[in-house]
Amino acid sequence: LVIDMSTISPQATIEIAKELNAKGVHMLDAPISGGSEGAANGTLSIMVGGDAEQVQRAMPVFQAMGKTITHVGAQGAGQTVKLVNQILVVGNCLAMCEALVFAEAGGVDLEKCLNAVTGGAAGSWMLANRGPQIIRRDWRPGFTINLQQKDVRLVMREADALGVPVLLSSMVFNLYRVLQERGLGAEGNHALVKALEYLSGVTVGEEAPVSGD
């Protein structure tokens, strides 16, 4: 049994699975979501494509690292759902960054603003986990811009093949490209806010002071 937990195109997954199946080898595509925090805490979301019997066979492996394990369909379906996840991730990230630039320009207390909106309908994992990092200007990655950009590129290629629009994803792709050109590809994907800062002339938050000995 081969379990592929990387993020690649659904079509590539199906082709690899066919070759393995022809040799009597089962394959599951099981990409993950949850960032470095989820990996460290064993709370990842795992979206699995493949035969149901093989999913059950692999369940002890999945349960060791994930909290939400969902069999989403046949081989390739795991990768399709992961790209759905990435569309939502970058859309949420862009909305968060846009909102924080707006809040900074409006002169409100960013921590109080974040606390207020996180508890309401606008709340999200991205806002709760990456919003505070942006306010502190902490660009340590749970997932880097370079890796996020790789996944957005997959989204755009698959969307083109399916004939569906991905407007936010396309916008984020181009904003990330600007940041990569500035040498920021190793920073966390929430550093997307820097592209909006360049456009607006507004800088969000401030770096936390470094405590001395």
Rank of each mutant, 00 (worst) to 15 (best):
C97Q: 01
C97P: 02
E98I: 08
E98C: 08
A99W: 00
A99M: 06
L100E: 03
L100A: 01
L100H: 01
L100C: 02
V101D: 09
F102P: 01
A103D: 03
A105W: 06
A105H: 13
A105D: 11
G106D: 01
V108A: 08
V108M: 06
L110T: 08
L110E: 02
L110R: 04
E111L: 09
K112L: 14
K112D: 13
C113P: 00
C113H: 13
C113I: 11
L114C: 03
A116F: 10
A116P: 09
G119M: 12
G119P: 05
G120R: 06
G120H: 07
A121L: 15
A122Y: 08
G123N: 05
G123E: 05
W125D: 07
L127H: 08
N129E: 13
P132K: 11
P132T: 08
I134W: 07
I134Y: 09
D138V: 06
R140P: 00
R140A: 15
P141Q: 04
P141I: 03
G142W: 02
G142Y: 06
F143G: 09
T144A: 14
I145V: 11
I145Q: 02
Q148N: 13
Q148Y: 08
Q149Y: 12
K150E: 03
D151L: 05
M156N: 14
M156I: 14
R157S: 14
E158L: 09
E158Y: 08
A159Q: 01
A161L: 13
A161D: 12
G163P: 05
V164D: 02
P165L: 08
V166L: 12
L168T: 15
L168Q: 10
S169H: 03
S170L: 09
V172R: 04
Y176E: 05
V178S: 13
V178A: 10
L179Y: 07
L179A: 02
